[in-house]
Design a protein around this nucleic acid. Structure first.
Lengths: 331, 331
DNA sequence: TTGAAAGCGCTAACAT
DNA sequence: ATGTTAGCGCTTTCAA
């Protein structure tokens, strides 16, 4: 551009300090002076340089967001929640996908810190001690969104995955005392482990059948859902219900079963997880455990703004509510 | 942090300039000196301040991305393409959703320019004269991704929407000389107008039936696809094929029709647009016009890097290839 | 209410 | 091959 605060000051016949005050909404400026400055700003088409500002004030009003994969429906929804609140508080988002690779995650964090982000929102598979150490050394607040740190030493926003999965299994067990299959995912390792635990505990609480054969390791994709269906159908003792750790895999399971002429939910009930928009886009519509992705993002960002503004925080580990949304893939 | 280039210089017994040279990979440094500096950097845990760097060099290595809605599958995929190439070239992405509101788009651009982004990738519904004017005044390169500027005065990456839609209709017309319905969307107004034109021209080329009743104005959502199906089924002369301007609406059409007992593709054929992952997640699987979203993003970003580095550009308006991916929703 | 002036941490001539 | 020295455009004491 070329127009600086100095040019404005000269034009308005005031000092740079006064222009700065006007830009920043400082009240200690005489109204007439303020107007003079405002006029000069308009005439010159002055646009404050946020980089210079950042250097002088040591605040950039931008926050880093490390996300496994922005093209994933689940995370994209979460990102939107972050973004909406960020823009409400005048923060910018620097967004990068990590593919859940630890090295990439750490590198991204480093780059963002070089850019002097005021804070970071992190989504990732698992939080190792190294992660924690790096986060603490970062000198800016870090929030984990939909990401569990077992040591509970970082601020975070999640649902109770263990309990959610347990309830889903219990829900099935009400009208189904037969075997229940489970499709896991390697993504979000820690969270999936919690889900698996909930699954197992629910079964043993009910005195139901459990063995390793009933767990199929998917990869979070639609196709792995289809493969899971094929696998379960090939079992001697077929499950009468299947629960997956994501909606996309649940759709795969439904279609995989239907492709083999199996009726859903009559012969096999299916429950997904996350309650993404996909749950309505399938026949029968998918019963799913609602996880409020948008809210997790929004609450994470809100929490970050509180930290950034030194506001009172009641609780650094936030747990949002979940619930089962019943549709037609269950009886 | 607190550690600056000055601290490193002192520790290594060299000048700041030398440290700067080492950081920036300048070759004019004696290997032993370089090593001394590197050691000092490690010992002190020095991390270069990108903000200071940006101020001094007038380059931020960050680019702004204005996107209608990051939680939309289509745009999220595009964003991922942008991001992958950006990170390959060491650029950071500042990402904001505009909801295709002109004011928001212009505001976002303004904010990004304040942040001194080196360039901008813009995705939006329509490009008005005001957009163009603002883009030109921005003083940084702007690329339109999956966004058409009819005046052709800006760099852009698209497919030939007109031709793509025309081919889709011709494809249907091969085995279907009956009426063909069309579901539009208000999103991407200009592009949808091109698609509509392709639809109409294809019909008239074939001497086929056309009237306004055959166009249903959807809103790009799954539900509006269902509504479109209901609408078309209520017509006296039902279409024998329906083509939509997005996959999500196509799924809605399929399910809306199936919910009323209509067989796809036997009674009605359906074609979607974009060939998103959804096309495989439905029964019957969806024939769709492939638009390479990821590539559009990647090529846009690559084009931007060329502009930024002053590399030779052959063509500022890039048209990527499209094609029809046949699946089971058509005969 | 306003101004003067010293940085913020780095790059980029220009010297040597 | 290395050092000196202006800035980059703004914020922020400190004074007035």
């Amino acid at each position: 551009m070329g127009v600086t605060i100095y040019d404005v000051a000269k034009k308005a016949n005031v000092s740079m300090a006064t222009v700065s005050r006007v830009i920043n909404g400082n009240t200690n400026v005489k109204p007439t002076t303020r107007q003079k400055v405002l006029d000069a700003i308009n005439e010159l088409g002055f646009r404050p340089n946020a980089v210079a500002r950042g250097l002088a004030s040591r605040k950039t009003t931008s926050v880093g967001v490390i996300i496994p994969d922005i093209s994933n429906l689940f995370f994209a929804e979460l990102a939107r929640g972050i973004e909406d609140i960020a823009s409400m508080y005048k923060y910018h988002i620097i967004l990068s996908s990590s593919d859940q690779q630890k090295n990439k995650e750490l590198d991204l964090l480093d780059n963002m810190l070089e850019k002097q982000v005021d804070g970071v929102i992190f989504m990732g598979s698992s939080v190792t001690d190294e992660h924690i150490e790096v986060f603490k050394r970062a000198n800016v607040p870090v929030i984990l969104a939909a990401t569990v740190d077992e040591s509970q030493s970082l601020a975070s926003v999640n649902i109770d995955y263990y309990q959610a999965m347990k309830e889903a299994v219990q829900f099935l067990a009400e009208h189904n005392d037969e075997v229940i299959g489970f499709v896991t995912s390697p993504l979000n390792a820690t969270i999936n482990e919690m889900k698996r635990q909930g699954y197992e505990d629910a079964l043993s609480d009910k005195g139901l059948n459990f063995n390793q054969d009933l767990i199929y390791a998917g990869d979070d994709s639609y196709n792995s859902g289809i493969e899971a269906a094929n696998y379960f159908l090939s079992l001697q003792k077929r499950p009468k219900a299947i629960i997956t750790s994501s909606d996309e895999m649940a759709l795969g399971v439904i279609h995989g079963a239907q492709d083999q002429g199996v009726k859903i939910p009559e012969e096999i009930e299916v429950i997904g997880f996350d309650n993404t928009r996909l749950a309505n886009m399938v026949r029968p519509t998918l019963t799913s455990v609602l996880q409020p992705m948008y809210d997790i993002g929004a609450v994470s960002m809100r929490l970050l703004t509180k930290l950034l503004r030194g506001e009172e925080i009641e609780q650094e580990q936030v747990t949002l509510p979940h619930r089962i949304v019943e549709r037609d893939s269950t009886k």
